[in-house]
Design a protein around this nucleic acid. Structure first.
Length: 573
DNA sequence: GCCGTTTTCGGCCCGACTGTTTTCAGTCG
């Protein structure tokens, strides 16, 4: 996926350079294409090989040609020409907060400033004093933006699981306070993107000023960047930016829809509205002066003739067309989860640890929990949980909740030592290069689950595609979720498009505020997974069934209940 | 530069906020 990200970055820079030239609509066109390329689930080269570049949203004739040139030669002559025409330091300048293309261009044309260092010198030499439009405050803003740029890259996106605890704490505080009524996080956080740039929080309140006061006093808030009548922007101690907006109850749904995005989804929605003689903004849907919707998201979508669309799908990837036909898929939700197939204990865990996991599973109203009782480490050595611990698992089998035993191994044949250990199913941990098949379907070697596969293991698109193909062939599920050892939402979507079911880790035994389960659910939903495409939303007896989802040809491919080491099927409850 | 069950040409989201302004330009999301 590296080359896709690189290509996207090139087009983003082209957009910035065109901005500096004062181009009106081209920059947005290039950015649109960059966003689309970034969210592709397959390698750009593969799309080009099929001559399907033009099917990528935002890619037309001109950009398709440039992609082909990029794939062929590693560069784009148009881009190289722009770089010769415009000092590259100007792009750095316009990426500073509060400084846009117009201002960067003025610095270049009027002051001969070609980059951040020269701007710093120009300010120090007092060359900005008296320049039209630059008062004392503006100059101080520039100084601090330059200082921040030196301190580190500004506003880098963070992994959603890192942001989760912060978001929960802020939402909790706002809900506990007396002044805010409804409180929701919007933005890419609500869409469950893998990374989050900032947090958008919406509240309803009769007294916005009081909400802002209370929010500013929160211990996580380090600095108020700006505060207006309806909006406050703060920086948290960790540097994360949070926008807090107060809206009226009758506008809440429209605001939630608007600020959840994505940008491309909203643009499509607004053009749909225009076609119907309506106008959509963050205050509602309007026919002339009359507001016809706004209190809830459902009525906003309904007023445009659409079924409500889950936030995780709002990326303009065809979801609007589906909603227009009234057919929005029911995505997996927390209450669908019936168990967990991939629970690890410490290698030396005692029987009490088993009881704790089982109690946690009971607390979640799960039907089953699958515990990894042994396996093969990356260095090839075999390990097993202590005898007493495994004995405890066996004792618990008949108790209400089903307890299953898994082994987790690398690719390849099952070691002799494990053959003598009873287990119900196998989890396979892939290597960085798929060189071996992970086992034929229906045999004892065949895995139920492919886990510990993520960016840390499989870094390039081709290897990931092969592992997805292997999982499909073996009718195994793949684990999605946060962290470098699970598929992110983009890779999860790739798995779903191939008809591979997913496993949602539930964080059994973790701390109560552990974000694993909710983030993983978000990723599964973003991948378009219905409950029947999530192995642990089904009964234990069908752990290797693949969901129907978007691939009808996969229906009925269940390979049945977990296998014993002899390959016989255990009767399911 | 892209896009189209009203368009192959003429559109392209739009409102909040800031700082510098006597009415608005630039930036941001």
């Amino acid at each position: 996926m590296t080359s896709n990200a690189d290509a996207a970055e090139v087009f983003r820079t082209v957009a910035d350079l065109l901005d500096l030239l004062g181009e009106k609509f081209k920059p947005e066109a290039y950015r649109r294409a960059a966003r689309s390329i970034e969210s592709l689930t397959e390698d750009l080269g593969a799309v080009a090989a099929r001559h399907e570049l033009r099917s990528i949203p935002g890619v037309g004739e001109a950009i398709a040609e440039k992609i082909e040139e990029y794939l062929r030669t590693g560069s784009i002559s148009y881009y190289e020409r722009l770089k010769r025409e415009i000092p590259p330091g100007l792009v750095e300048l316009m990426r500073l907060p509060g400084l846009g293309p117009k201002t960067a261009r003025r610095f270049w044309v009027e002051l001969g400033v070609e980059g951040p260092n020269e701007l710093r010198d120009a300010i120090a030499a007092g060359r900005l004093v008296g320049v039209k439009g630059f008062g004392e405050k503006k100059i101080e803003q520039l100084r601090s933006a330059l200082r921040a740029a030196v301190a580190g890259p500004v506003l880098a996106r963070r992994a959603i699981e890192e942001v989760y605890p912060v978001a929960s704490a802020l939402v909790h505080a706002l809900r506990e306070g007396a002044t805010a009524d409804r409180v929701e996080v919007a933005g890419s956080f609500r869409r469950a993107r893998d990374t989050v740039g900032d947090l958008d929080i919406l509240v309803t309140s009769k007294d916005p000023g009081k909400v802002f006061e209370a929010f500013t006093a929160h211990p996580l808030v380090a600095e108020v960047k700006m505060r207006g009548e309806t909006k406050e922007t703060v920086l948290l101690t960790g540097g994360l930016q949070v926008d807090l907006r107060v809206v009226k109850p009758e506008e809440f749904g429209a605001a939630l829809q608007y600020f959840t995005g994505s940008k491309d989804h909203n643009v499509r929605l607004r053009s749909l509205a225009r076609d119907r003689g309506l106008k959509v903004n963050e205050y509602g849907v309007f026919r002339g002066e009359e507001r016809i919707a706004g209190a809830t998201e459902e009525e906003v979508y309904a007023s445009l003739g659409l079924a409500w669309i889950p936030p995780e799908l709002r990326e303009d990837r065809g979801e609007i067309e589906v909603a227009a036909r009234g057919k929005v898929p029911r995505l997996v939700s927390e209450s669908d989860l019936r168990g967990d197939l991939h629970t690890h204990l410490a290698p030396d865990a005692n029987a009490d640890a088993v009881d704790r996991i089982v109690a946690d599973a009971h607390a979640h109203h799960f039907d089953y929990v699958g515990v990894v009782v042994g396996g093969v480490r990356a260095d090839g050595t075999v390990w097993l949980l202590p005898d007493a611990t495994r004995a405890r698992l066996t004792e618990l089998r008949p108790v209400g909740l089903r307890v299953a035993c898994a082994v987790e191994t690398g690719v390849g044949p099952m070691p002799k030592e494990l053959e003598s250990t009873p287990f119900d199913y196998r989890i396979v941990r892939p290597t960085s290069t798929p060189s071996e098949e992970i086992g034929p379907r229906g045999s004892a070697r065949s895995p139920t689950l492919v886990a510990h596969v993520g960016s840390s293991v499989v870094s390039d698109a081709a290897a990931l595609a092969r592992w997805v193909g292997e999982a499909r062939r073996a009718a195994a599920a793949i684990e999605v979720g946060p962290g470098p050892e699970r598929l992110d939402s983009t890779a999860g979507r790739q798995a779903r498009e191939a008809g591979v079911a997913v496993h949602v880790p539930t964080g059994l035994g973790a701390a109560a505020d552990d974000p694993t389960r909710l983030v993983a659910l978000g990723f599964a939903r973003r991948a378009g997974a219905a409950p029947d495409a999530v192995v642990n939303a089904g009964p234990l007896g069908t752990v290797s069934a693949t969901g129907s989802g978007s691939t009808p040809e996969r229906r009925g491919m269940s390979s049945g209940p977990p296998r014993s080491r002899s390959g016989r099927r255990r009767p399911s409850s």
